[in-house]
Amino acid sequence: MTTAENTTPLLEVSDLHVEFHTRDGVVRAVNGVNYSVNSGETLAVLGESGSGKSVTAQAIMGILDMPPAKIPQGEIRFRGQDMLTMSREERRQLRGQKIAMIFQDALSSLNPVLSVGYQLGEMFRVHQGLNKKQAKAKAIELMDRVKIPAAAQRVNDYPHQFSGGMRQRIMIAMALALEPDLIIADEPTTALDVTVQAQVMDLLAELQQEFHMGLILITHDLGVVADVADKIAVMYAGRIVETAPVKELYAQPAHPYTRGLLDSIPRLDQKGQELYAIKGLPPNLLRVPSGCAFNPRCPKAEDICRTELPALAAVSEDRGSACHFWKETLNG
Protein backbone atom coordinates (compact mmCIF):
# COMPACT_ATOMS: atom_id res chain seq x y z
CA MET A 1 0.00 0.00 0.00
CA THR A 2 1.37 3.41 -0.94
CA THR A 3 1.37 6.34 1.44
CA ALA A 4 -1.17 8.19 -0.65
CA GLU A 5 -3.67 5.39 -0.13
CA ASN A 6 -3.02 5.47 3.56
CA THR A 7 -3.76 9.13 3.97
CA THR A 8 -6.52 9.70 1.43
CA PRO A 9 -9.86 8.27 2.48
CA LEU A 10 -11.57 5.93 0.03
CA LEU A 11 -14.48 8.31 -0.21
CA GLU A 12 -14.67 11.82 1.08
CA VAL A 13 -17.77 13.97 0.87
CA SER A 14 -17.13 17.60 1.67
CA ASP A 15 -19.57 20.45 2.00
CA LEU A 16 -22.08 18.72 -0.27
CA HIS A 17 -25.25 20.60 -1.11
CA VAL A 18 -28.12 19.12 -3.07
CA GLU A 19 -31.27 21.01 -3.89
CA PHE A 20 -34.41 20.12 -5.81
CA HIS A 21 -36.12 22.71 -7.91
CA THR A 22 -39.83 22.06 -7.60
CA ARG A 23 -42.93 24.02 -8.47
CA ASP A 24 -43.35 25.00 -4.82
CA GLY A 25 -39.83 26.29 -4.48
CA VAL A 26 -36.32 25.08 -3.85
CA VAL A 27 -36.04 22.10 -1.52
CA ARG A 28 -32.62 22.03 0.09
CA ALA A 29 -32.31 18.32 0.80
CA VAL A 30 -28.61 18.28 1.67
CA ASN A 31 -26.93 21.30 3.26
CA GLY A 32 -23.20 20.94 3.61
CA VAL A 33 -22.64 17.31 4.47
CA ASN A 34 -19.13 16.07 5.28
CA TYR A 35 -18.17 12.48 5.82
CA SER A 36 -15.53 10.00 4.82
CA VAL A 37 -15.13 6.24 4.60
CA ASN A 38 -11.98 4.15 4.44
CA SER A 39 -11.48 0.71 2.98
CA GLY A 40 -12.81 -1.97 5.29
CA GLU A 41 -14.69 0.59 7.31
CA THR A 42 -18.45 0.83 7.86
CA LEU A 43 -20.09 4.19 8.19
CA ALA A 44 -23.70 4.18 9.26
CA VAL A 45 -25.76 7.16 8.19
CA LEU A 46 -28.76 7.50 10.44
CA GLY A 47 -31.81 9.68 10.11
CA GLU A 48 -35.55 9.95 9.59
CA SER A 49 -37.10 10.01 6.13
CA GLY A 50 -36.37 13.34 4.54
CA SER A 51 -33.15 13.88 6.47
CA GLY A 52 -31.14 13.76 3.24
CA LYS A 53 -29.37 10.47 3.87
CA SER A 54 -30.57 8.76 0.70
CA VAL A 55 -30.12 11.87 -1.42
CA THR A 56 -26.49 12.10 -0.32
CA ALA A 57 -26.01 8.48 -1.32
CA GLN A 58 -27.63 9.03 -4.70
CA ALA A 59 -25.41 12.05 -5.25
CA ILE A 60 -22.37 9.85 -4.58
CA MET A 61 -23.65 7.21 -7.00
CA GLY A 62 -24.47 9.86 -9.56
CA ILE A 63 -28.01 8.59 -10.00
CA LEU A 64 -29.88 11.75 -9.07
CA ASP A 65 -32.19 13.01 -11.76
CA MET A 66 -30.70 16.33 -12.74
CA PRO A 67 -32.91 18.31 -13.13
CA PRO A 68 -34.86 18.58 -10.83
CA ALA A 69 -31.86 17.91 -8.57
CA LYS A 70 -28.89 20.24 -8.57
CA ILE A 71 -25.56 20.14 -6.79
CA PRO A 72 -24.66 23.82 -6.36
CA GLN A 73 -21.71 23.22 -4.09
CA GLY A 74 -19.48 20.54 -2.68
CA GLU A 75 -17.05 17.80 -3.57
CA ILE A 76 -17.30 14.02 -3.64
CA ARG A 77 -13.81 12.58 -3.80
CA PHE A 78 -13.26 8.94 -4.61
CA ARG A 79 -9.63 8.01 -3.97
CA GLY A 80 -8.87 11.70 -4.03
CA GLN A 81 -10.53 12.41 -7.35
CA ASP A 82 -13.57 14.69 -7.46
CA MET A 83 -16.35 12.73 -9.10
CA LEU A 84 -18.51 15.79 -9.66
CA THR A 85 -16.05 17.15 -12.22
CA MET A 86 -15.71 13.86 -14.09
CA SER A 87 -17.28 13.26 -17.48
CA ARG A 88 -20.48 11.27 -17.72
CA GLU A 89 -18.60 8.29 -19.16
CA GLU A 90 -15.93 8.35 -16.44
CA ARG A 91 -18.63 8.28 -13.81
CA ARG A 92 -20.44 5.43 -15.53
CA GLN A 93 -17.22 3.43 -15.49
CA LEU A 94 -16.99 3.89 -11.71
CA ARG A 95 -20.57 2.82 -11.11
CA GLY A 96 -20.84 -0.89 -10.58
CA GLN A 97 -17.10 -1.42 -10.93
CA LYS A 98 -15.75 0.74 -8.12
CA ILE A 99 -18.85 1.91 -6.29
CA ALA A 100 -21.96 -0.20 -6.08
CA MET A 101 -25.30 0.31 -4.45
CA ILE A 102 -27.82 -1.95 -2.73
CA PHE A 103 -31.36 -0.66 -2.70
CA GLN A 104 -34.11 -0.99 -0.17
CA ASP A 105 -36.87 -2.86 -1.94
CA ALA A 106 -35.31 -5.64 -3.98
CA LEU A 107 -38.58 -6.62 -5.65
CA SER A 108 -39.09 -3.26 -7.28
CA SER A 109 -35.38 -2.62 -7.72
CA LEU A 110 -34.82 -5.73 -9.81
CA ASN A 111 -36.16 -5.77 -13.33
CA PRO A 112 -39.31 -7.93 -13.21
CA VAL A 113 -39.08 -9.26 -16.76
CA LEU A 114 -35.42 -10.29 -16.83
CA SER A 115 -34.09 -13.40 -15.12
CA VAL A 116 -31.80 -12.88 -12.15
CA GLY A 117 -29.07 -14.68 -14.06
CA TYR A 118 -29.36 -12.14 -16.85
CA GLN A 119 -29.32 -9.22 -14.45
CA LEU A 120 -26.28 -10.52 -12.59
CA GLY A 121 -24.49 -11.58 -15.75
CA GLU A 122 -25.10 -8.19 -17.30
CA MET A 123 -22.47 -6.72 -14.98
CA PHE A 124 -19.82 -8.97 -16.51
CA ARG A 125 -21.04 -8.60 -20.05
CA VAL A 126 -21.07 -4.82 -19.95
CA HIS A 127 -18.02 -4.12 -17.82
CA GLN A 128 -15.79 -7.06 -18.69
CA GLY A 129 -17.04 -8.03 -22.13
CA LEU A 130 -17.78 -11.65 -21.25
CA ASN A 131 -20.13 -13.62 -23.49
CA LYS A 132 -23.54 -14.87 -22.38
CA LYS A 133 -22.32 -18.29 -21.34
CA GLN A 134 -19.38 -17.03 -19.30
CA ALA A 135 -21.60 -14.40 -17.71
CA LYS A 136 -24.10 -17.02 -16.66
CA ALA A 137 -21.38 -19.13 -15.05
CA LYS A 138 -20.24 -16.04 -13.16
CA ALA A 139 -23.81 -15.34 -12.09
CA ILE A 140 -24.14 -18.83 -10.62
CA GLU A 141 -20.84 -18.35 -8.82
CA LEU A 142 -22.12 -15.10 -7.33
CA MET A 143 -25.40 -16.65 -6.24
CA ASP A 144 -23.44 -19.38 -4.48
CA ARG A 145 -21.34 -16.76 -2.81
CA VAL A 146 -24.36 -15.02 -1.28
CA LYS A 147 -25.64 -18.45 -0.21
CA ILE A 148 -28.63 -18.85 -2.46
CA PRO A 149 -29.47 -22.57 -2.41
CA ALA A 150 -29.43 -24.46 -5.74
CA ALA A 151 -27.98 -21.51 -7.62
CA ALA A 152 -27.43 -23.44 -10.83
CA GLN A 153 -31.11 -24.37 -11.00
CA ARG A 154 -32.39 -20.97 -9.99
CA VAL A 155 -30.24 -18.81 -12.23
CA ASN A 156 -32.96 -18.60 -14.88
CA ASP A 157 -35.72 -17.74 -12.40
CA TYR A 158 -37.25 -14.30 -12.21
CA PRO A 159 -37.17 -11.96 -9.21
CA HIS A 160 -40.80 -12.62 -8.22
CA GLN A 161 -40.02 -16.31 -7.82
CA PHE A 162 -37.65 -15.64 -4.92
CA SER A 163 -38.44 -14.84 -1.29
CA GLY A 164 -37.72 -11.37 0.08
CA GLY A 165 -34.50 -12.43 1.77
CA MET A 166 -33.25 -14.25 -1.32
CA ARG A 167 -34.05 -11.25 -3.49
CA GLN A 168 -32.02 -9.00 -1.23
CA ARG A 169 -29.17 -11.51 -1.51
CA ILE A 170 -29.40 -11.15 -5.26
CA MET A 171 -29.16 -7.37 -4.90
CA ILE A 172 -26.09 -7.87 -2.74
CA ALA A 173 -24.60 -10.29 -5.26
CA MET A 174 -25.17 -7.74 -8.00
CA ALA A 175 -23.40 -5.06 -6.03
CA LEU A 176 -20.53 -7.40 -5.24
CA ALA A 177 -20.19 -8.71 -8.78
CA LEU A 178 -17.17 -6.69 -9.82
CA GLU A 179 -15.68 -6.53 -6.33
CA PRO A 180 -16.11 -2.79 -5.88
CA ASP A 181 -14.13 -0.73 -3.38
CA LEU A 182 -17.18 0.89 -1.90
CA ILE A 183 -20.72 -0.32 -1.34
CA ILE A 184 -23.59 1.95 -0.44
CA ALA A 185 -26.48 0.08 1.13
CA ASP A 186 -29.64 2.16 1.32
CA GLU A 187 -31.82 0.60 4.00
CA PRO A 188 -30.95 -2.90 2.79
CA THR A 189 -33.05 -4.70 5.41
CA THR A 190 -36.05 -2.44 5.87
CA ALA A 191 -38.37 -4.54 3.75
CA LEU A 192 -37.41 -7.84 5.42
CA ASP A 193 -38.52 -9.93 8.39
CA VAL A 194 -36.45 -9.50 11.54
CA THR A 195 -34.84 -12.95 11.33
CA VAL A 196 -34.00 -12.44 7.67
CA GLN A 197 -32.68 -8.95 8.47
CA ALA A 198 -30.05 -10.45 10.73
CA GLN A 199 -29.00 -13.00 8.10
CA VAL A 200 -28.69 -10.37 5.41
CA MET A 201 -26.75 -7.99 7.64
CA ASP A 202 -24.40 -10.78 8.71
CA LEU A 203 -23.80 -11.72 5.10
CA LEU A 204 -23.11 -8.15 4.15
CA ALA A 205 -20.68 -7.66 7.02
CA GLU A 206 -18.94 -10.94 6.23
CA LEU A 207 -18.48 -10.11 2.56
CA GLN A 208 -17.30 -6.63 3.43
CA GLN A 209 -14.55 -8.07 5.60
CA GLU A 210 -13.62 -10.59 2.94
CA PHE A 211 -13.21 -8.03 0.19
CA HIS A 212 -12.00 -5.24 2.46
CA MET A 213 -14.58 -2.84 1.07
CA GLY A 214 -15.79 0.44 2.43
CA LEU A 215 -19.47 0.34 3.35
CA ILE A 216 -21.92 3.16 3.79
CA LEU A 217 -24.97 1.81 5.54
CA ILE A 218 -27.98 4.07 5.37
CA THR A 219 -30.68 3.26 7.86
CA HIS A 220 -33.21 4.61 10.30
CA ASP A 221 -32.93 1.50 12.42
CA LEU A 222 -30.54 1.89 15.35
CA GLY A 223 -30.72 -1.82 16.07
CA VAL A 224 -29.19 -2.71 12.72
CA VAL A 225 -26.31 -0.31 13.17
CA ALA A 226 -24.94 -1.32 16.56
CA ASP A 227 -23.32 -4.58 15.51
CA VAL A 228 -21.85 -3.76 12.16
CA ALA A 229 -20.93 -0.07 12.01
CA ASP A 230 -17.61 1.48 13.00
CA LYS A 231 -18.83 5.04 13.05
CA ILE A 232 -22.11 6.81 12.75
CA ALA A 233 -23.25 10.04 11.18
CA VAL A 234 -26.68 11.24 12.32
CA MET A 235 -28.49 13.44 9.84
CA TYR A 236 -31.31 15.89 10.42
CA ALA A 237 -32.87 18.22 7.84
CA GLY A 238 -30.03 17.81 5.39
CA ARG A 239 -27.19 18.29 7.84
CA ILE A 240 -25.03 16.03 9.95
CA VAL A 241 -25.93 16.79 13.56
CA GLU A 242 -23.68 14.29 15.22
CA THR A 243 -20.83 12.04 14.20
CA ALA A 244 -19.08 9.56 16.47
CA PRO A 245 -17.63 6.06 16.78
CA VAL A 246 -20.54 3.70 17.27
CA LYS A 247 -19.90 2.63 20.86
CA GLU A 248 -19.40 6.16 22.13
CA LEU A 249 -22.53 7.38 20.44
CA TYR A 250 -24.63 4.67 22.04
CA ALA A 251 -23.11 5.23 25.44
CA GLN A 252 -23.12 9.02 25.47
CA PRO A 253 -24.92 10.91 22.72
CA ALA A 254 -23.81 14.51 22.30
CA HIS A 255 -26.91 15.79 20.51
CA PRO A 256 -30.49 15.93 21.83
CA TYR A 257 -31.77 14.43 18.57
CA THR A 258 -29.52 11.39 18.89
CA ARG A 259 -30.60 11.06 22.50
CA GLY A 260 -34.22 11.15 21.39
CA LEU A 261 -33.56 8.44 18.82
CA LEU A 262 -31.87 6.21 21.37
CA ASP A 263 -34.64 6.76 23.88
CA SER A 264 -37.29 5.75 21.40
CA ILE A 265 -35.91 2.22 21.00
CA PRO A 266 -38.34 -0.15 22.73
CA ARG A 267 -36.64 -1.95 25.63
CA LEU A 268 -37.50 -5.31 27.10
CA ASP A 269 -36.78 -4.31 30.67
CA GLN A 270 -39.24 -1.45 30.51
CA LYS A 271 -42.24 -3.42 29.38
CA GLY A 272 -45.58 -1.81 30.05
CA GLN A 273 -44.26 1.74 30.02
CA GLU A 274 -45.24 4.12 27.31
CA LEU A 275 -42.72 4.32 24.48
CA TYR A 276 -40.75 7.49 24.21
CA ALA A 277 -41.25 9.49 21.03
CA ILE A 278 -39.57 12.67 19.87
CA LYS A 279 -42.37 15.23 19.85
CA GLY A 280 -43.33 17.03 16.67
CA LEU A 281 -42.59 16.13 13.07
CA PRO A 282 -39.51 16.34 10.84
CA PRO A 283 -39.35 19.81 9.29
CA ASN A 284 -40.74 20.67 5.89
CA LEU A 285 -37.62 21.19 3.83
CA LEU A 286 -39.26 24.12 2.04
CA ARG A 287 -39.55 25.93 5.38
CA VAL A 288 -36.70 24.81 7.61
CA PRO A 289 -36.86 26.52 11.03
CA SER A 290 -34.33 29.29 11.57
CA GLY A 291 -31.34 28.59 13.76
CA CYS A 292 -30.96 24.92 14.60
CA ALA A 293 -33.48 22.97 12.50
CA PHE A 294 -34.23 20.72 15.45
CA ASN A 295 -35.15 23.55 17.86
CA PRO A 296 -38.99 23.23 17.72
CA ARG A 297 -38.71 19.59 18.82
CA CYS A 298 -35.78 19.94 21.19
CA PRO A 299 -36.32 19.70 24.96
CA LYS A 300 -33.16 21.76 25.57
CA ALA A 301 -33.90 24.57 23.12
CA GLU A 302 -33.19 28.13 24.22
CA ASP A 303 -33.22 31.48 22.45
CA ILE A 304 -29.86 31.03 20.79
CA CYS A 305 -31.13 27.83 19.12
CA ARG A 306 -33.84 29.79 17.33
CA THR A 307 -31.47 32.39 15.92
CA GLU A 308 -28.07 30.82 15.44
CA LEU A 309 -27.24 27.73 13.44
CA PRO A 310 -24.81 25.63 15.48
CA ALA A 311 -21.67 24.46 13.64
CA LEU A 312 -20.39 20.91 14.00
CA ALA A 313 -18.21 21.35 17.09
CA ALA A 314 -15.44 18.93 17.93
CA VAL A 315 -16.47 16.93 20.98
CA SER A 316 -13.29 14.91 20.86
CA GLU A 317 -10.76 13.97 18.19
CA ASP A 318 -13.18 11.77 16.26
CA ARG A 319 -16.51 13.09 17.47
CA GLY A 320 -18.59 16.08 16.49
CA SER A 321 -21.93 17.56 17.50
CA ALA A 322 -23.91 20.38 15.97
CA CYS A 323 -25.56 21.57 19.16
CA HIS A 324 -25.05 24.75 21.18
CA PHE A 325 -25.39 22.68 24.31
CA TRP A 326 -23.45 19.57 23.39
CA LYS A 327 -21.52 19.60 26.67
CA GLU A 328 -24.70 19.54 28.74
CA THR A 329 -26.18 16.85 26.51
CA LEU A 330 -23.06 14.71 26.73
CA ASN A 331 -23.20 14.77 30.51
CA GLY A 332 -26.88 13.83 30.55
Binding site: Q93, R95, G96, A100, F103, S108, S109, N111, E122
Partner: peptide, 16 residues
Protein backbone atom coordinates in the same frame (compact mmCIF):
# COMPACT_ATOMS: atom_id res chain seq x y z
CA UNK B 1 -39.39 2.72 -11.83
CA UNK B 2 -36.95 1.56 -9.18
CA UNK B 3 -35.35 -0.99 -11.49
CA UNK B 4 -34.36 1.80 -13.86
CA UNK B 5 -32.42 3.44 -11.03
CA UNK B 6 -30.76 0.08 -10.39
CA UNK B 7 -29.82 -0.23 -14.05
CA UNK B 8 -28.14 3.18 -13.96
CA UNK B 9 -26.41 2.34 -10.68
CA UNK B 10 -25.01 -0.79 -12.31
CA UNK B 11 -23.05 1.45 -14.64
CA UNK B 12 -24.85 0.28 -17.77
CA UNK B 13 -24.57 2.54 -20.81
CA UNK B 14 -27.66 4.62 -21.50
CA UNK B 15 -28.59 2.75 -24.66
CA UNK B 16 -28.69 -0.49 -22.68
Amino acid sequence: ADYMRTAVAKGLPRRR
